[in-house]
């Protein structure tokens, strides 16, 4: 068991990091926000944590608080102009945000060490730390999801006209989604910095954006199981395809297209819906025999 854990610990840690990023992407998509800003928020969190640890020798907990804080703040600042815009424009603006952050981390060399990234960050967060973070974030997302906020998210995503006719404020809920997304991604970035010894700007670029989006599209964006399932599949898949390194991108691309066309609700949400249908069907069959 210990041996197994040791040899697979890096992969598990990566899966947990991806799960956190997927949570951040999930929460905006659930609310019908087309934000692609998760990579930017994560970069801010990672750099805040790494700089505090390496340049100022701050303790880990403070670095994580800073990572969480800067992600939250960035989410809130972005939300102010973007909450009133239509989806495509939210996507474009957050994509620009990723580019702006990337360009800052690449060019503000005094602070970020430029393209080389920040190295020799003490590893203070291990597998257990990552796991705790995923469980805590997942728990809060589940609570929020089953509260009136989650219900409002669902209605806004499915039909904005209905939402406003029920008195639901779309900008307010989009703001909440942006802030949650920023906070979760910021924390994820901070944890990753303390978990992986080094960070570089390009980790948090277009590739991360695509992968994280793919996780949630593949997994599903209503239940919190969606991002978890998506993160696990897309972390393990590259390992299985190690022999076909050149075709990895083709497989990812094809997966993205196939799932949006044939499984538009994602693996987890489709499975949950099927399960619910079956439960109702068996319940019906039972009551049917009673009345007969």
């Amino acid at each position: 068991m210990i041996g197994f854990l040791n040899s697979y610990a890096p992969l598990l840690e990566l899966a947990l990091f991806n799960a956190l990023l997927a949570f951040s992407q999930y929460v905006v998509l659930r609310a019908g926000v087309f934000s692609l800003g998760t990579a930017a928020f994560a970069a801010l969190g990672a750099y805040a944590a790494a700089i505090l640890a390496t340049k100022l020798a701050m303790p880990t907990w403070l670095g994580l608080v800073a990572a969480f804080g800067i992600g939250t703040l960035a989410g809130a600042l972005v939300a102010i102009p973007l909450a009133r815009l239509r989806g495509v424009f939210q996507a474009l603006a957050t994509l620009a945000l990723v580019q702006i952050v990337l360009s800052i981390t690449l060019n503000w060399v005094d602070l970020t060490e430029g393209a080389l990234g920040i190295n020799s960050i003490p590893k203070t967060v291990g597998l257990v730390g990552m796991l705790v973070a995923v469980v805590v974030v997942g728990y809060f997302l589940a609570v929020i999801g089953s509260s009136s906020i989650g219900r409002a998210f669902d209605i806004i995503r499915e039909d904005e006209t209905v939402a406003v006719s029920l008195g639901i404020s779309v900008p307010k809920h989009h703001m909440i989604a942006f802030i949650l997304s920023g906070a979760i991604a910021g924390l994820a970035g901070g944890l990753h910095a303390y978990n992986s010894y080094s960070i570089t700007p390009n980790e948090y670029g277009f590739n991360m954006l695509v992968i994280v989006l793919a996780m949630v599209v593949l997994g599903g964006r209503v239940s919190i199981w969606g991002p978890l399932v998506g993160a696990v599949i897309l972390t393990v898949l590259p390992e299985l395809l190690r022999g076909f390194q050149e075709y990895r991108m083709v497989v990812q691309g094809a997966l993205l297209m196939v799932s949006i066309v044939f499984l538009p609700r994602g693996v987890a949400d489709t499975a949950l819906a099927a399960l619910r249908r079956r439960r109702i069907a068996t319940a019906k069959a039972k009551t049917g025999t009673v009345t007969a």
Binding site: L29, G87, V217, M249, G253, L256, M257, I260
Partner: peptide
């Protein structure tokens, strides 16, 4: 399917990965 903007974004990202690769 009359799918919304979001799925077109996702699907074209997938296509671009393939064309790129």
């Amino acid at each position: 399917r009359g799918a919304p903007e979001f799925s077109s974004i996702v699907s074209s990202i997938g296509a671009s990965l393939i064309l790129l690769s």
